[in-house]
Simulated scan of single mutants.
Amino acid sequence: MSTSARLRDTLTDRLTEDGTLTEPEWSSAARSVPRELFTGSYFAPVAGSAPTRYRPVREGTPGWLEGVYSDRTLITQLDGRTRPDDVTEGAAVSGSPSSSSTLPSLVLRMWQQLGVEAGHRVLEIGTGTGYSTALGAHRLGSTRLTSIEYDPVVGAAAAAALEAAGFAPRLIIGDGLRGDPDGDPYDRLIATCAVRYVPLPWLHQVRPGGKILVTLSGWGYASALALLEVTGPGEATGRFLPGCTSFMIARPHDRPPRPTLALLPGDERPSRIDPGKLDEWTGAWVAQLAVPAAERLGAGAEQILWDVSTGSQARTAAHPDGGWTVVQRGPVRLWDRVERAVQCWQSADEPGQEAFGLTVSAAGQRVWLGSEDGPGWDLPI
Score class of each variant (00 low, 15 high):
94 S>R: 15
8 R>L: 07
262 A>E: 14
110 M>K: 01
216 L>Y: 01
310 T>G: 11
54 Y>F: 13
143 T>G: 13
239 R>W: 09
369 L>I: 08
173 I>F: 02
123 L>M: 09
234 G>D: 05
242 P>K: 06
30 A>T: 09
196 R>A: 08
199 P>L: 02
148 I>Q: 02
101 S>V: 05
215 T>D: 08
247 F>V: 08
87 V>R: 01
87 V>F: 03
175 D>M: 04
177 L>V: 05
296 R>F: 09
340 R>E: 15
79 D>Y: 10
212 I>H: 02
318 A>R: 15
331 P>G: 10
375 P>Q: 09
88 T>P: 12
104 P>D: 04
20 T>Q: 05
2 S>T: 15
254 D>G: 11
25 E>F: 12
80 G>S: 04
100 S>K: 05
116 V>Y: 00
290 A>S: 10
16 T>P: 05
209 G>K: 12
226 A>V: 10
328 Q>T: 14
239 R>P: 00
137 A>F: 01
215 T>V: 13
290 A>W: 05
380 P>D: 01
319 H>K: 13
142 S>P: 08
326 V>T: 10
168 A>C: 11
140 L>I: 09
371 S>P: 04
19 G>C: 07
269 R>S: 12
87 V>Q: 01
137 A>W: 01
327 V>E: 15
207 R>L: 09
197 Y>Q: 08
370 G>Y: 02
252 P>K: 02
242 P>V: 07
136 G>N: 12
143 T>V: 13
11 L>A: 06
2 S>A: 12
154 V>D: 01
331 P>C: 12
287 A>H: 06
291 V>S: 01
277 K>P: 00
